[in-house]
Nucleic acid binder design. Structure first.
Lengths: 195, 195
DNA sequence: TAAAATGGAATGAACGTTCGATTTATGAAA
DNA sequence: TTTCATAAATCGAACGTTCATTCCATTTTA
């Protein structure tokens, strides 16, 4: 997840992620990060300008990682439906495999603590733009109803997010059956031939 | 929104809500709340035990308010589809009419800062339970595909939330047309006669 | 041997909360 | 209606703690 960072930075980012998820931003103090990561505050400040920098770096790293994960095996020569369903399934599997990263992005993507510059950089490397393109194609090919592709992406992602949140709260169990159902429901929602 | 509170409590809750939305929790200090609401910290502590209490009270008040709003005109003798679509439209209109409350709940419903007790109390008076019942009925009547009603509610709510978030970020414009489309898409996603 | 990296005590600002003085409201007695 | 005593409400300075950050001595690396 933090491959492009050195050992110390990696330890700091991983520790910060864990602490923020189990506690929260304001309860995640620098001294706690230092203690839990085994790196002194002095060293942390040698690699990061400030606490804000750590959080923003964390945000960018996770969004980039998620982007790569979601777009796995999506640019193939298979039918558009297959590729879209693969992206959707990747989203679900990603959040199950890396729940901390998922929760972090969920909690902070709309927070003022994340700078606009970080959000912009994240958008560049994230999955949102590329996926919007696929939706656009699906609309143009008449597979999807004529609707704003960006709204569709948001809508579908939101529906996954909330089922996953419920899963992480132990209110819903995500099984392979439920995943199959979710993909079906997602397709049906905007499929042109069901109208 | 805060009718069951006295004048001072109301001012404190309203100010806190505004500050938390435009800044965030950790930047919303008691002295700032005091200054902006025109009520001294001494008085605030006369009515609230702590900052935590204020936030939790805010959370409960908003969820209760939202619950009433969403369930408006849903318990009528009209067809189930009409009543479900009314609940969905209420959700959308609520978030457009009271965006601060919407954003607050969005940001804090999964935060450790909100006690489990507050979440439990909120669930009792919120719209989630009653709506789940309606979905259950729709499944039993064969209107909806056989799927866990709770997951359906989450899924649909999530899809609205994300479109609304995009709207509040000025990335999408919610028009009456888009609302009509959203209701249609929501119905299609789980409608039994489209399978 | 010079530069980079590390450690952790020290610093100063900011925060939530408390406290005691002061003002305002209440209501029974005259 | 006025008076007065008690209680409730309000204020903001003061308190103690915690936090992000700095600093410099020490260790490690090149």
């Amino acid at each position: 997840m933090f491959d492009r960072y050195n050992k110390v930075q990696k330890a700091v980012l991983e520790t910060t992620l864990s602490l923020i998820i189990e506690k929260e931003l304001q309860a995640t103090s620098m001294s706690l990060i230092a203690k839990k990561s085994g790196i002194s505050t002095g060293s942390i400040y040698h690699y990061f300008d400030s606490k804000e920098t750590i959080i923003n770096e964390l945000y960018k790293a996770i969004v980039l990682f998620n982007g790569e994960y979601v777009l796995q095996n999506v640019y193939t020569d298979e039918p558009l439906r297959t590729r879209l369903e693969r992206a959707w399934e990747n989203m679900i599997r990603l959040s199950l495999e890396y729940p901390k990263g998922f929760q972090f992005i969920e909690q902070y993507s709309f927070s003022p603590y994340i700078h606009d510059e970080s959000k912009r950089q994240a958008y560049e490397g994230g999955w949102c733009g590329p996926l919007k393109q696929l939706y656009q194609e699906a609309v143009e090919q008449g597979l999807f109803i004529p609707m704003d592709p960006f709204s569709m992406v948001q809508m579908h992602y939101g529906s996954f997010v909330y089922v996953i949140k419920a899963h992480l709260n132990r209110e819903v169990a995500i099984t392979d059956d439920l995943i199959r159902q979710l993909l079906q429901v997602t397709w049906n929602s905007v499929s042109a031939d069901k109208q």
